[in-house]
Design a protein around this nucleic acid. Structure first.
Length: 815
DNA sequence: AAGGCGATGTTTTTT
DNA sequence: ACATCGCCTT
């Protein structure tokens, strides 16, 4: 069942909930004694009770903003201010929306299905847009393009416009258009000052792109919001209807809103102005994708008379950690200004350590994690799931993955490519899209020659031409081309089969969809096959198209993972009534939540860490150029640096008890060894909340030998000089040469694949094994639980036995 | 039509 | 270093 089904959210669906919820507490909500108020501090309470008019809830990290936000919703309901379907609650991610629903539901003692207008900007926009699509020239069943489709479409337009796509990459145009849409600029509103971009033809192509989208009855992500804003701005009656309906607005992570989202909110809030924005200017880290910190900084100007409530009591971190974070962030100008405080015990100081290079850093952190797991650091015992490594850029993860695989430390990478962004998932989805709507040209293009059907550029151009001449879809065009014999021998049979396959699958989606009316539909189709449930249909499509076989025949190490993902995809179908519902869902949702119970260290980017917390946090790579990122500073100057600093703030405030910052003197960047300077943010850490650790390498004393403080820089400089001597020494060069000769072409593992470190299998020399990261290999030696394996792709590696499986098992992934 | 090879550009990411 | 992409060869 789709989350975005078209049940009428305006109607009575949710009345029963509100009435029951209210009835459950006769006289409930009078005064502050209601259960949902229990445990709120005075600031949180104030945020809950300030119901009317604009409210800005400035919620520092770990100050219980979600608690306040959910209590506020419950309060509005209990006080009878609004029915559940009259509250608009907006988040950025589906995860946040889900969590809010759950928590509100728990407080109400009901399943919060009755809050239809709680969701992401995009999902709520889709809901609104489907009702008024015709006002922007779309039909209400428009499709939502992903970034991939978007770029491919733009590429066609760029080529058609005779522009050198090498000098002016379509991807760049996509970025510009996204930027414009984020700022709510339709093609005619793009300022002329920006017209020079993209070979002076940016706006022209933007307009052409919008036109093309309309023809395809499609939207990109930016359109979902922008079309809503356009409708609100040009149809006062429609806007008024929504303004009347949504009695209260709540916005989470307000500091992340872009101009378009801001307009969307402001338009809806005009009138009663019952809008409550929650956010933290110090955690604004998405400026690079259009977020405007200005929105939150300007709130009181935008909404005069606003109540501003600061949540400053932190329930997450120790005082040292908070002080370190505050010290760093205080270097930023133009903050609204908050001071976090806590009642927690002092705990450990933030630990700082320098390393020789990135590999040593990874080695040290690995050992530290294991020591904390055993409880041998005198700082308590922490399970692996309590520990996280937060990096600035995802390429930093590699060193950790390599190291952890070698020592057999279970880890999981959070983030990474989204499930639905993986190639095999998109391919499979394209097949499903074709089955549901054979006229989906973008899907057709994607898979017409996948697996290879001998339909290359020439054949595809012929199909395009035929279709365009007849004014029909590529699917129909292809049918005609086959019928007219306009296609050569080998491809002809294949194309015919492909076209007929689509017809057959399409017929089956019709038969599969409405279970109740199945008989009628079958009659209508005539010789239609038996009704088929959509899960089996999906399997069949992937089977018959040869797509599954394509990966089964693929011998690269990532192929089994891809088949695994396809299985997962099919499994995910079970939760939906039909393919259509599923496609709608996936176009807006990332479902990356593979909560496996196994104990694992988490590795993720700082961006992905926002909103999370861990007892133990490692922050490696604090080196100028890497963090703060050089690129960020080059492109956005001081603004960029300040955003990096907020990222540092986010990183530190993720830690509850133990926070360890580290840097390396040398790092390989783009294959080149570079000597690194410690991050300027390290200088901003308040000295009395930091403990400097001695690195294990003892490269002439290390940072721990020096008193921490103003002398640190000089020491670091001296150290660097000393180290660069070592770096230039013959011994070091020999080491480098050896390292360079080592076969290290390690294929990147398919992320999210469960690594079962607990499986103990007996191997003998000569066994053929499969490793998630290194691929296939032969066991050449055994030492305890460690194996020496000669991998065909990655060379000789020592790996923990639990990380490899028998090659036959791995190759035989049943579908 | 498809696989191999050299040029290229490398943050962060949601929907 | 390394992956991706477009072009060139077969």
């Amino acid at each position: 069942m789709s989350q975005y089904d078209e049940n009428d959210a305006f109607e009575a669906a949710s009345l029963s909930l509100s009435q029951r919820a209210l009835a459950a507490r006769p006289g409930g909500g009078v005064g502050g004694s209601a259960d949902y108020m229990a445990g709120l501090n005075s600031a949180q309470r104030a945020a809950v009770e300030a119901m009317d008019g604009p409210v800005l809830m400035l919620a520092g990290a770990g100050t219980g903003k979600t608690k306040a936000l959910t209590a506020r919703i419950v309060h509005l309901l209990r006080m009878g201010r609004a029915r559940p379907n009259e509250i608009l609650a907006v988040t950025f991610t589906n995860k946040a929306a889900r969590e809010m629903k759950e928590r509100v539901g728990r407080l109400l003692g009901e399943v919060a299905e009755g809050m239809p207008w709680m969701g992401t900007f995009h999902s709520l926009s889709v809901k609104i847009l489907r009702r008024h699509a015709e006002l922007v020239g779309l039909k209400s069943n428009f499709t939502i393009l992903d970034t991939d489709d978007q770029v491919r479409l733009l590429k066609q337009l760029v080529i058609a416009a005779n522009i050198d796509e090498k000098r002016w990459p379509p991807r760049m145009l996509a970025g510009m258009i996204d930027g414009w849409k984020n700022r709510a600029l339709t093609p005619e509103r793009v300022p002329s000052s920006e017209a020079a971009g993209y070979a002076h033809r940016g706006t022209e192509l933007y307009a052409a792109y919008q036109e093309r989208l309309r023809t395809l009855n499609a939207c990109d992500f930016g359109d979902l919001l922008l079309h809503c804003v356009t409708i609100f701005q040009t149809h006062a009656d429609v806007l008024a209807q929504y303004q009347r309906w949504f009695k209260y607005l709540l916005v989470d992570e307000y500091q992340d809103t872009n101009v378009c989202q801001y307009l969307w909110l402001r338009l809806l809030a005009q009138g009663h102005r019952n809008i409550c924005c929650v956010g933290d200017d110090d955690q604004s880290i998405y400026g690079w994708r259009g977020a405007e910190v200005g929105n939150i900084l300007r709130f009181e100007k935008d909404f005069p008379g606003a109540t501003v409530i600061k949540l400053e009591q932190n329930y997450r971190s120790t005082p040292h950690i908070l002080a370190a974070a505050s010290g760093v962030i205080s270097a930023n100008a133009g903050r609204l200004g908050k001071t976090l405080w806590t009642e927690a015990q002092a705990g450990e100081k933030v630990r700082l350590i320098g390393h020789w290079d990135g590999e040593e850093e990874a080695r040290w952190i690995g050992e530290e994690i294991e020591a904390l797991q055993r409880g041998t650091r005198g700082m308590g015992k922490y399970g692996l799931e309590d520990q996280a490594i937060l990096v600035r850029a995802s390429h930093q993860m590699r060193a950790f993955e390599d190291r952890f695989l070698t020592i057999g430390l279970p880890y999981r990478v959070i983030g990474g490519p989204r499930f639905y962004e993986r190639q095999e998932i998109r391919d499979a989805m394209a097949y499903f899209r074709l089955a549901v709507s054979p006229e989906d040209d973008l899907a057709f293009e994607r898979v017409v020659n996948l697996p290879k059907r001998g339909l290359g550029d020439k054949a595809q151009a012929d199909i395009q031409r035929t279709a365009r001449m007849a004014g029909v879809s590529l699917h129909e065009g292809a049918r005609e081309l086959v019928a007219s014999g306009g296609i050569g021998g080998k491809g002809a049979g294949q194309l015919r089969a492909f076209v007929e396959g689509i017809d057959r699958w399409h017929a089956l989606t019709l038969a599969a969809a409405p279970v109740v009316d199945a008989d009628d539909v079958i009659e209508a189709i005539g010789a239609a096959p038996k009704p088929m449930d959509h899960v089996r249909l999906a399997e069949m499509i992937l089977e018959e198209s040869g797509y599954t076989a394509m990966w089964q025949n693929d011998k690269t190490p990532e192929a089994p993972g891809r088949l695994e993902n396809l299985k997962e995809l099919v499994k995910a179908l079970e939760q939906f009534d039909n393919l259509q519902g599923f496609l709608e869902h996936v176009s807006l949702i990332m479902d990356n939540e593979t909560e496996d119970a196994l104990e694992k260290v988490s590795i993720m980017t700082l961006h992905a860490a926002k909103g999370l917390e861990f007892p133990v946090v490692f922050l490696p790579g604090w080196e100028d150029g890497l963090f703060p990122s050089q690129r960020s500073m080059d492109e956005s100057g001081l603004k960029g640096l300040e955003e990096e600093r907020r990222l540092a703030y986010v990183g530190i405030t993720r830690a509850e008890e133990v926070c360890t910052i580290s840097f390396a003197s040398n790092r390989r960047v783009y294959g080149q060894w570079q000597s690194q300077l410690p991050s300027r943010f390290i200088d901003e850490l308040p000295a009395n909340h930091v403990e400097v650790l001695t690195p294990p390498g003892l490269y002439g004393g290390g940072y721990g030998a020096a008193a921490y403080g103003s002398a640190r820089i000089e020491t670091a400089m001296d150290e660097r000089v000393a180290k660069s001597d070592v770096y230039n020494s013959p011994g070091w060069r020999r080491m480098q040469d050896r390292a360079a000769q080592r076969p290290v072409s390690q294929p990147r593992e398919a992320r999210g694949v469960v690594i079962d470190a607990t499986a103990v299998s007996a191997f003998t020399e000569g066994d053929r094994v499969f490793h998630q990261k290194f691929g296939y290999g032969i066991v050449t030696g055994i030492e305890g639980d460690k194996l020496e394996v000669d991998f065909s792709k990655a060379g000789v590696k020592r790996v923990v036995a639990g990380f490899v499986v028998d090659a036959d098992e791995a190759g035989d992934v049943p579908f």
